[in-house]
Every structure is written in C-alpha cells, then in structure tokens.
Design a protein around this nucleic acid. Structure first.
Lengths: 200, 200
DNA sequence: ATTAAGAAACTGACCGGTCATTTTTAAAAA
DNA sequence: TTTTTAAAAATGACCGGTCAGTTTCTTAAT
C-alpha cells in the first residue's frame, strides 16, 4: 500500500486526460484522433492512459458524462439567480449559443456524441438523460410563468416547450455553422421577439 | 468474368456504387464503413472500385454532390407546382422532415458531411454552395409573398429568411433525433401557425 | 535519519489486426 | 490479338491495446 499520488491527484490526471481528449476530438474528430494524439497533448505515455481508462471509447463516454454534468450545473446555477421565467428562457438561449471559437469546437464533439449514439446504447442513454432533464427544466419554467401570469393562461405547456426547443436548436445550429456574428445577434433578437409574442 | 461495358453501363455502376456507399455510410457512418462493406453491398470486388473512384473520400464527395443536385431538383420541381408563397414555405418544411427511418438514415450522412467539412475545403465548398442556393430560393419566395400582399409589407426579408431557416432546422433536428412522431406532427403545426402569424 | 522493500505509476517498443490502396492475374469483348 | 474490366492477392501504413521493464514515491524497520 503506497499510493504514489492522492485520490484527488489521480482525479486531476483523469481530468487532464479528458481535456486533452476534448482538444483532439474537437479539432480532428473522434475517429481521426489517435491515442497517440491524446497522450502527446497530455504529456503522458500511451500505456499510462490505460491506468485511467479502459479504451478509447471509454474516454469518449467519460468525456461526455463530464461535460453533461458540468454544463447542467452551470446552467442551473445561472438560472437560479434569475427570477422572471421570461428572462430565464432568454438567458438560456444566450448561454447555449457558441459565440466563441472555443465553444464551437466543443460543439463538434457534442454532435459526434450524438451521431455515434446511434450505435452505442451507453451513449444513447447518457444523451437521452440529458435531453429529458432539459425538457423537464423547461416545462417547470413555463409552468411557473403561467402560474405567475407572465405567460398567457391558455398556453399549452407541452407545445410551448417544443417550440422553445425548436427555436433554441435552430438558432444553435446556425450559430455553430454560421459565420456572420453580427447578423446572428440580430436574428436571435428577432427570434426572441417572436417567441415572447407567442407565450404572452 | 470481365465484361466490357458501355458508357451508360459504366455510369450505372458508378451510381450503383454510390447507392451502396450511402447505405453503408448511413447505417454505420463514414469512418466505420469499409470499402469491403461497400463492395459486399454492391456485389463487386474491392479492386474494381478503383476503376470508378479515386479513393474512399472521393466516393464520399461524389455522393454528396449527387444527393445535393438530386434533392435540389426535386424540391424545385415540387415548389414550381405550388402557387402561393405561404404554401411553398409550408411544403418545403414538410418535404425536408425525415419522417421515415430511411430518410433519417440519410440524415446521418448529411450531418457527417457537414462535420467533416471542417477539415475538407472541397466538402466545405459543396455545402456552402448548397446553403447559399437554399437561402436565395427562400428570399425569392418571401419577396414574392410581399409583392403579392400575402405577407405584411414591413416584413424584413433578411430577418424572415433567417427565421424560416431557424424554424426549419430546429424542427428538422428534432425530427432526426426524435422519438414521438405523433407529437412531432402537432409541434410542426404549431410552429407553422406561429410562423404564419409572423409573416402575415 | 537512513535505507531497503515494494507497490503504484509510467514508459515506449511491439504485436496483431484492420483497411485503403496497388498490383497481378484472368477473362471477355472487339 | 489487343483492350478493357473484374477478381483476387499482395502491400504496407496505421492504430488500439499490451507488457516487460523502469522510475518514483511511501512506508516502516533499523
């Protein structure tokens, strides 16, 4: 019994490895990234990766899980500080738009997660968990908005949720693809107006 | 066996290979699909592929170009038969929703095209061509709608186009991911109503 | 305080297999 | 025979994962 590094240090290594993997995956994609790429980036040797993860796919899965919880926690924290349901929804959209190149790179991995989930039950489960949690949060906000009278009373929560997510994802997709940030911002504003008219 | 073959037959073989490739790419993804998979599907030998295409990537690119032109022509034809700009836009959305499992599978390839375009100038060009053509068509329809008085006169064509595409892509994304077709259809209708209210 | 033991962590050459691509061979058409 | 095409076999680069050996650190006996 002689742990050379503490549990935290070990976790730090794992995290370090995951970040290196993210960097590789997001610039070259999952398939094109090799274990050698990752360890080069992480300043580690190939073999030692397997002290931390079982396989390349295992890295992928842990990366997804990590990012999922991180972003959920971050979002919840932010939303808790906002009182108005309307403002919450507005904030949410802005929070998720990948304005920076950095965020855009992560989106590539995000989309790959989703793409490969078609073949991996594990991935599929993680993603659908995430999705369900998101939808539940949205429904809660919209329900609250109705109760407060901020939204119209005959608003169908189910429909409004779907609407929110279509708008959200449409904008999101365009942001990921898109070039012109100036235009994008004005489009988002227009979108917000339409949505607000719809819910009020 | 090694029959000599006419130009048309040769083109037919190429097409046959492309369709086989599509089938493989859409069920397993581009990277996971091997040349062996493709030829097994096409009932051809591995080597002969290289009589028709330069490389695996070459197959990918030709497949994209083929599908791009096919779908554009198909869409134009359909839209030409519709008179009302409103109905045109409505039709367009429905046309692109991958209701069938078959269409969904193709979408996977579509998304892969886009994902890998980040590393391939050739792919990038094909995709942006496609995108620009789509946007132009939309603008034309919206402009026509205004001229006819079917849409409100102060509608900003640029904004309305962006709006259409965000809605379109949001719905599209959800359809691709989606589970519940029943729900989806009612969401689409809701979406249409909101959009029509917006443009009129 | 020193040091030896031993376990944890790391290294990187290497292996087995895969796969895109090339070369060779064969056969059919002209 | 010559040309064209397909099939089969060969090639070799590449990559995930392994493993025998090495380093580094902790522990505890001296």
């Amino acid at each position: 019994m002689a742990p050379r590094i503490s549990e935290e240090a070990k976790k730090a290594r794992r995290d370090h490895l995951l970040e290196a993997a993210l960097e590789c995956f997001s610039s070259k994609g999952y398939y094109a990234s090799t274990i050698d790429d990752i360890v080069r980036y992480a300043n580690l040797s190939k073999g030692s990766v397997y002290n931390y993860f079982e396989s390349k796919e295992d890295i992928f899965i842990h990366l997804l899980e990590k990012k999922r919880t991180e972003s959920m926690e971050h979002l919840k924290e932010k939303l808790d500080k906002i009182d108005s349901p309307t403002k919450k929804l507005q904030h949410w959209i802005h929070e998720d738009i990948p304005y920076s190149q950095d965020k855009k790179k992560f989106m590539r991995v995000h989309i790959e997660f989703w793409l490969y989930s078609a073949d991996s039950p594990k991935l599929k489960e993680i993603l659908s968990k995430r999705f369900d949690a998101m939808v539940d949060m949205t429904k809660a906000i919209i329900t609250e908005g109705k109760k407060r009278g901020e939204f119209r009373q005959d608003l169908d929560v189910e429909q409004a949720t779907a609407m929110f997510w279509s708008l959200h994802d449409g904008i999101w997709l365009h942001a990921v693809i898109g070039y012109d940030v100036k235009k994008l911002e004005s489009h988002i504003r227009e979108m917000e107006n339409v949505f607000i008219t719809y819910i009020q």
